[in-house]
Amino acid sequence: MEALALWQTIAIFFVFIWSGFVRSGLGFGGAVLSLPFLLLIHDKPLVFLPLVSVHLLVFSSLTIAHPWIKDLARGQQPAFESNINWLYLRKILAITIIPKLLGVFGVISLPNDVITNVIFAIVLIYGLSYVLQKSFVSNHPLLDWVFLILGGYVSGTSLIGAPLIIAVMARELPREQLRDTLFALWFILVSIKLVAFAAAGIDLQWQAHLWLLPAAAIGHVLGLKFHQYSLKVEPKRFMQWIGIALIAVALAGLLQY
């Protein structure tokens, strides 16, 4: 990562705390709820996408393994029970994998300002849906395919396709299986993206992880605690405030061009 002003360094550190919090707390949003803030601080999508991708790999793995780690810490034999619905995961992957690859090719080949504007436009739509409490809902097999294909493509270009994919998965999976199955899906899709970045010679920002992984770890721990709370209540007001922030940031970003 190129040299940054002190305020940019501090702001990026706190955004990655936020990123870790929403990722483990909600099961999605590590990119969509943090990338627009990062782009306002430093307008370089291909700087932040590898960082967010690696963080997602690390903390999705830790979240899935968290019950086993707790058992080991208590001196108990790990149960090795999983909340991942592997059969359903294979079905989702079969639909999203090709759009994902097309999206990865797009983010590598498109100009920086085009990628940035696309990200802000998508985030604006998500923000409006959160404020109006009109989340994406699929109730027809054909619409399922549309959402999954679009979600795979958007995930390939910018890692922010989660709300479209969740519109399908949230309806078909029990709530206790949703987060971990999503994390398993993100792990596979993001691994593909990182391999493509490396093959294209894009800097994966390994040095920046030394100071940003701890930031994401702080948010990760806080998010695990929030997730336990969110299983008992429906945090609609929380998501509305997030929506307002996303709309403000997206509009500010779009007005820069």
Rank of each mutant, 00 (worst) to 15 (best):
L35F: 13
I192F: 06
L49R: 10
L39M: 13
P78V: 11
F14W: 12
I115R: 02
L89E: 00
M169R: 02
G243M: 02
Y126E: 02
H140E: 13
F187H: 05
W7K: 12
L182R: 02
H55F: 08
L150I: 13
P174N: 09
G201L: 03
L38D: 07
K134S: 11
V221P: 01
G27S: 03
S129I: 09
S155K: 06
V249H: 05
F28S: 13
L185C: 06
I98M: 12
W7D: 12
N117A: 14
S191R: 01
L4T: 07
I41Y: 01
I64S: 08
L93Q: 09
L212R: 11
A121W: 05
P36E: 08
G20S: 01
A198P: 01
M239I: 05
L87H: 14
Y126V: 15
A73C: 10
S60E: 06
L213R: 00
S129A: 13
K134N: 10
S24G: 04
Q207R: 14
N83W: 02
V195P: 03
V123D: 06
S135R: 14
P235A: 10
E176W: 01
N85K: 11
S230A: 15
L142H: 12
A31G: 14
I166Q: 05
F238Y: 15
F13V: 04
S155Y: 04
L255C: 11
R23I: 03
I17T: 04
S109V: 08
P174F: 04
V131P: 07
L251C: 13
K134R: 15
G223K: 04
F59D: 04
R23C: 05
W86F: 15
R175P: 03
I41S: 07
G223I: 03
S19N: 07
K232Y: 02
S82A: 08
V154E: 08
P163T: 11
I108P: 10
L159K: 06
K193G: 15
I12F: 06
F226Y: 13
L142K: 10
I202C: 01
V52L: 15
K100C: 12
F59K: 05
D43A: 15
A196M: 05
F238K: 04
K232H: 10
F197C: 06
A196I: 04
L35V: 06
R175N: 13
D144L: 03
L40W: 11
P78A: 11
L173C: 05
R90E: 11
Q207Y: 09
I165R: 01
R179N: 05
F183V: 05
V131K: 03
A79L: 15
F238A: 06
I242E: 01
W86D: 00
V104P: 00
F13L: 09
G156I: 07
V195L: 11
R74Q: 14
A184F: 02
E81Q: 14
L87M: 10
E172P: 00
K232D: 12
V104A: 12
A217P: 09
A79Q: 14
I165D: 01
G152I: 06
W145F: 06
